[in-house]
Structure formats: structure tokens, C-alpha cells
């Protein structure tokens, strides 16, 4: 067994980094008491082993279970927990986390490790070597590996891809994968204009990126449907369609012309 990754993790866990972080990892969390600690463990081990300064931001979304108290007791030197006053939706939590990030690169990753953190390096290469502004994990790009996804979810995903192409004008095959990488300027530009607080914020962010001609790369990832998902496919699909129309209307009304200063729902930062 290699001691390097473990030793690097121990250092990261105990000592605050002395340089600005190269990477900020943002995890949105709503009632994740069952899943958040293993996810943090896997992410912290991999990211620490890379040898670059990095920070972890957990953006709580008004959890009503023990998620926040669990995080408070972890006492990791380079982890910040942003505790929201109330539940506002995944989009609001990710926005809060991204706008608090100090890294040159910002990774948004779901709390369930559906996309294993080991794939971060692969995505990062597309930014550092090819100059992309955004690199998104994709379950539908050629070469992706998807495990344990139900037939209902597969069919709905296919339908949504068609709608996104037709109504949204996006050629991206997977707007919703919870594993996306941004350069800091791109993240700030997009998340200060992003309005949608719900789970369709990804779509809105990519719509804005397309509108402002940012360079977006889609990279196939390994994806494992995490047990315990709270997503209800049919309800989510209908909501997604509504919000796609809302994005178009927002654009027509000029609501994306200006950057916003605040991150939304007030939140307290806990180290």
C-alpha cells in the first residue's frame, strides 16, 4: 500500500494551506448524513495525493438531518462548510459554494460519488493543455461507462437530450452530470448571472456559457448510479422542461445581462 496519498491527506487535514488553492472542490449537500463522509474521504485522499494546494467547500442547502453537525465535528483544516438558513435548491447551494471558492479551478461534484473523483485529472487536462473554460463529465459521450442506471432513467435522459438540443440549442449530450470543472473566471462570470435555484441550474449555466461563447468540452466519465438517490425521474423531467422554457424567457427578457452581487440565501461559514 502506498503511504503517499495517506500521508498527503493527513497533512491536508491537519495544516491550513499556505498558498492560494489551485483547486476548489464544491460539494452541495442536502440531508446527506448517510453519504457525505465517505465522499469527503475519497475526494480528500485523491486530491491531497495530487500534491497541489486545494480546498474543500461543502455548501449545505438547509439540511434538516445531522449533515451539518457531522461536518462540524470533522475538523479538517482546509474544509469550509457553508450552512444555509433554509433549503433553497441545488442551484442555490452550488452558486454559494462556487462564489466562495478561491481556487484557480473549481470542481463541482455531487455528494454521492456517482462520478468517482479519480476522473478529475482527466478533465483537468482539457483545461490546462487545451484551454477550455469549462469541462463537464458526460455519461453520454462516446467512451462513457454507466452502471446501475434504471431503464426509466435511461429513457427519460434520452428524451431530455433531444429537448435540450431542440429548445435550448445546446449540442452538449449531458447537461446534468454532477461533475463539472470551471476556470475561476468562467465560474464567476456564470454563477453571478445564474438565476435558477433548482436542479436545472446546470442547464442554465451551460446555456449561458454557450451564449457567451465560452469553450466547453465534454469528457466521457465512469458513472455509477448511487443507491439512495432521491431523484424522482418523471417529476424531475417535467420540472426540467419548465425550467428550460424559463431559461429561454429569462434570456429574452434580458435577465442574464447583469451580474448579481450576492450568492442568494444567507449562509454561515463554519471551518
Amino acid at each position: 500500500m502506498s503511504l503517499d496519498a495517506y500521508t498527503a491527506y493527513r497533512t491536508w487535514a491537519a495544516e491550513e494551506i499556505s498558498h492560494p488553492p489551485r483547486v476548489s472542490v464544491v460539494i452541495p449537500a442536502y440531508n446527506e448524513e448517510e453519504r457525505i463522509i465517505p465522499t469527503i474521504g475519497a475526494i480528500a485522499t485523491h486530491m491531497s495525493a495530487r500534491g497541489e494546494p486545494w480546498e474543500l467547500i461543502v455548501a449545505d442547502d438547509g439540511s434538516t438531518d445531522t449533515t451539518v453537525s457531522l461536518l462540524q465535528t470533522m475538523n479538517l483544516a482546509n474544509m469550509r462548510v457553508l450552512v444555509a438558513e433554509r433549503n433553497g435548491g441545488k442551484g442555490s447551494a452550488v452558486r454559494r459554494g462556487v462564489l466562495a471558492a478561491r481556487g484557480e479551478i473549481v470542481l463541482f461534484a455531487d455528494a454521492d460519488q456517482s462520478t468517482p473523483i479519480e476522473q478529475f485529472d482527466h478533465l483537468l487536462n482539457r483545461i490546462t493543455h487545451e484551454g477550455y473554460d469549462i469541462v463537464i463529465g458526460s455519461r453520454h459521450a462516446a467512451g462513457a461507462s454507466v452502471a446501475n442506471k434504471s431503464m426509466v432513467r435511461k429513457m427519460l435522459s434520452g428524451g431530455l437530450r433531444f429537448v435540450v438540443r431542440t429548445l435550448g440549442g445546446l449540442t452538449i449530450t449531458d447537461t446534468q452530470c454532477g461533475f463539472k470543472l470551471f476556470t475561476a473566471p468562467a465560474a464567476r462570470s456564470l454563477f453571478t448571472r445564474q438565476i435558477i435555484d433548482g436542479f436545472s441550474f446546470d442547464l442554465e449555466v451551460l446555456y449561458l456559457a454557450n451564449k457567451t461563447q465560452m469553450r466547453v468540452a465534454e469528457v466521457p466519465v465512469e458513472w455509477i448510479d448511487a443507491p439512495g438517490s432521491t431523484v424522482r425521474p418523471l417529476k424531475v423531467t417535467l420540472q426540467f422542461l419548465q425550467e428550460l422554457i424559463r431559461v429561454r424567457l429569462n434570456d429574452l427578457r434580458g435577465r442574464y445581462a447583469h451580474h448579481r452581487s450576492g450568492a442568494g440565501i444567507p449562509a454561515q461559514t463554519i471551518r
Binding site: M1, I37, A42, T45
Partner: peptide
């Protein structure tokens, strides 16, 4: 036995390293 690095960290974070007999880590 022989916990991989991420598993070892997860065991420590959950304090479960105290609940098992562990060899090699």
C-alpha cells in the same frame, strides 16, 4: 487487512478503525 488509502481515510473519518481488527494499516 491492507486497507487502500481512501478506505483507510474513510475508516478514520467515521471512527470505524476502532471497531475492527485491522492488519497492515
Amino acid at each position: 487487512a491492507d486497507l487502500s488509502d481512501p478506505v483507510r481515510v474513510i475508516f478514520e473519518l467515521t471512527a470505524l478503525d476502532q471497531a475492527f481488527t485491522i492488519e497492515g494499516a
